[in-house]
């Protein structure tokens, strides 16, 4: 057998670790350089896509004037207000349908039917009902958030380990105590999966809602820039959505890490 190719260029463990850390970034950085080069060489017209440098400059200008932060704040507030409304409704209804058979019989079929309507298909009606007001955006975000939370809460309650419930009852737990000690913690992993999905939907719905009509927020900033062909501002807006989405996901992961620290999957050490 020939020598292993790595033997010819011995790499120490530390360098290999650094190499492994950097490797995923090679392609994005190369793309960025290519993008900048294509813009500088004039191959990529700035009314089609601005150069990375122009995007960074635009970002710095917008944040220096404070305009950017106003839009980010407004969008974030909208997103989380809608999330709070839809999430709490989904959680409460999910807990009710999961825990009480008669509530399930009464509500679940209806909710499953509504779930099959794409939320975005409701936009014409939503505009008719709420106008192009703040409440229309909250409604859309809340609607997008509601179903992932509802379905996963319902599923979580239903799939609580029956052996643990039986054990709890033989130890005299019943009613609210059985709920607090066994049912809720047992359903929590599933609920948090719902929350994570919901945080993703939250931004999608907000982007659509703000793109239709808004007088402030990242969507407004982006659509306004389109009117004036400010492609650099548009790219800043798009990147901001990506960044906020990533932060929401990190938030969800953090919640899982804290609340599910008992779970073998989240245990790093004793």
């Amino acid at each position: 057998m020939p020598d292993h190719p790595q033997k010819a260029f011995p790499i120490t463990g530390r360098w290999r670790a650094i190499g492994h850390g950097l490797a995923p970034w090679v392609v994005p950085v190369a793309l960025l350089f290519f993008w900048q080069w294509a813009s500088s060489a004039g191959w990529l017209p700035s009314r089609f896509l601005p150069s990375p440098r122009a995007v960074v400059k635009s970002f710095l200008d917008l944040s220096a004037s404070g305009e950017l932060w106003t839009h980010v704040r407004v969008s974030t507030e909208r997103a989380f207000s809608g999330f709070a409304i839809g999430g709490v409704l989904g959680l409460v209804l999910g807990l009710l349908t999961g825990s009480f058979r008669w509530v399930e019989t009464l509500l679940d079929t209806t909710l499953q039917m509504i779930r099959n309507i794409p939320a975005l298909a409701l936009i014409p009606l939503v505009i008719l009902w709420f106008g192009i007001d703040e409440s229309a955006k909250l409604f859309l975000v809340a609607l997008g958030v509601f179903f992932p939370v509802y379905i996963n809460t319902f599923h979580g309650i239903q799939s609580v380990d029956r052996g643990l419930l039986e054990m709890g009852r033989t130890y005299g737990l019943s009613g609210w105590r059985l709920y607090r000690e066994i049912i809720l913690p047992g359903a929590l992993p599933s609920i948090l999966v719902g929350v994570r999905f919901a945080l993703g939907f939250m931004w999608v719905m907000l982007i659509v809602a703000e793109t239709i009509s808004a007088r402030s927020g990242i969507g407004y900033m982006t659509m306004n820039a389109r009117e004036f062909m400010q492609t650099d501002v548009m790219v800043v807006g798009i990147l901001l959505y990506a960044l906020l989405g990533k932060m929401a996901d990190l938030l969800a992961k953090g919640m899982e890490r804290y609340w599910l620290r008992w779970h073998p999957a989240y245990q790093t050490s004793r």
């Binding site: 039986e166 709890g168 130890y171 008992w262």
Partner: peptide, 24 residues
């Protein structure tokens, strides 16, 4: 005053050992 032990321990995975022992 009856207690039962099952084939599987049926400890609550989200409680540490001591709170599991003081369950109820």
């Amino acid at each position: 005053d009856i207690r039962i032990m099952f084939q599987d321990s049926r400890l609550l995975p989200w409680k540490r050992i001591l709170p599991n022992v003081t369950l109820g």
